[in-house]
Amino acid sequence: DRYEFNINGVHFTIDDAEEELIKLIEELLKRGARAEEIEEVIRRWER
């Protein structure tokens, strides 16, 4: 599934997002994580 979200006006799209990654990102968003922090999480996840 495609997952899309915005952080401070920056648009992100993840194709074939796994449910666990989506939950992790949503938790980070609730905590007010910065875009750079979430980008790093996504990079690590994709390795």
Score class of each variant (00 low, 15 high):
Glu37Leu: 07
Glu19Ala: 09
Glu18Cys: 06
Asp1Gln: 14
Ile22His: 02
Leu21Phe: 05
Leu29Met: 11
Leu24Asp: 07
Phe5Cys: 03
Glu27Asp: 11
Leu21Pro: 00
Asp15Cys: 07
Arg43Trp: 09
Leu21Ala: 01
Ile22Trp: 05
Asp16Tyr: 13
Glu20Gly: 13
Arg31Cys: 09
Val41Asn: 04
Glu37Val: 07
Lys30Gln: 12
Tyr3Gly: 02
Leu29Ala: 05
Ala17Glu: 04
Asn8Pro: 02
Val41Arg: 05
Ile7Phe: 04
Phe12Gly: 01
Ala35Trp: 10
Gly32Ser: 09
Val10Ala: 06
Ala33Asp: 03
Arg47Ser: 12
Glu39Thr: 12
Arg34His: 11
Ala17Leu: 04
Glu40Tyr: 09
Ile42Phe: 05
Leu28Thr: 05
Thr13Ala: 13
Glu4Ile: 05
Glu37Ser: 05
Asp15Thr: 09
Ile42Trp: 04
Ala35Ser: 08
Trp45Ile: 01
Ile42Tyr: 05
Arg44Gly: 11
Ile38Lys: 00
Val41Ala: 12
Leu29Thr: 04
Glu46Lys: 12
Leu28Gln: 07
Arg43Met: 11
Ile25Asn: 00
Arg2Cys: 07
Glu27Thr: 15
Glu4Ala: 03
Glu46Thr: 10
Arg2Tyr: 07
Ile38Thr: 01
Arg43Cys: 08
Arg31Asn: 11
Ile7Arg: 02
Glu37Pro: 00
Ala17Asp: 04
Arg2Thr: 08
Arg31Pro: 02
Glu37Arg: 04
Asn6His: 12
Val10Tyr: 06
Gly9Asp: 07
Ala33Arg: 05
Thr13His: 09
Lys30Pro: 02
Ile25Gln: 00
Leu29His: 03
Glu26Ile: 14
Lys30Met: 14
Gly9Cys: 02
Tyr3Glu: 01
Leu28Met: 13
Asp1Ile: 15
Asn8Ala: 08
Thr13Glu: 07
His11Asp: 07
Ala33Gly: 06
Arg2Phe: 07
Arg2Val: 10
Gly32Ile: 01
Arg44Leu: 14
Lys30Val: 11
Asp16Asn: 15
Asn6Ala: 09
Asp1Tyr: 07
Gly9Thr: 03
Glu18Ala: 12
Leu28Val: 06
Phe5Val: 06
Leu24Trp: 06
Asp15Phe: 15
Ala17Lys: 08
Tyr3His: 04
Glu26Leu: 13
Ile25Ala: 00
Glu19Ile: 12
Asn8Phe: 04
Asn8Thr: 04
Gly9Ile: 02
Arg44Asp: 09
Lys30Arg: 12
Ile25Val: 08
Arg43Asn: 08
Phe12Asp: 00
Glu26Phe: 12
Ala17Ile: 06
Ala35Pro: 11
Asp15Glu: 14
Asp1Cys: 15
Glu26Tyr: 13
Glu20Tyr: 06
Glu39Gly: 08
Phe5Gly: 02
Gly32Ala: 07
Phe5Leu: 06
Thr13Leu: 12
Trp45Asn: 02
Leu29Ile: 13
Ile42Glu: 00
Glu40Leu: 09
Phe5Glu: 01
Glu19Thr: 11
Glu39Leu: 14
Leu29Ser: 04
Ala35Gln: 11
Leu24Glu: 14
Ile25Gly: 00
Arg47Tyr: 13
Glu37His: 07
Thr13Pro: 01
Glu36Trp: 12
Tyr3Gln: 02
Thr13Asn: 05
Glu27Ile: 14
Ile42Met: 06
Leu28Asn: 05
Ile38Phe: 08
Ala17Asn: 05
Ala17Arg: 04
Ile38Cys: 03
Ala35Gly: 06
Glu27Val: 15
Glu20Gln: 07
His11Thr: 15
Leu28Arg: 07
Arg34Val: 13
Phe5Ser: 01
Leu21Lys: 02
Glu4Trp: 03
Arg34Trp: 09
Ile22Leu: 05
Asp1His: 14
Glu4Tyr: 03
Glu27Arg: 14
Ile14Gly: 01
Glu18Gln: 12
Arg34Gly: 15
Glu4Pro: 01
Leu24Ala: 13
Asp15Met: 13
Ile22Met: 05
Glu4Leu: 02
Ile14Gln: 01
Glu18Ile: 03
Trp45Leu: 02
Leu21Glu: 02
Glu46Arg: 10
Asp1Trp: 04
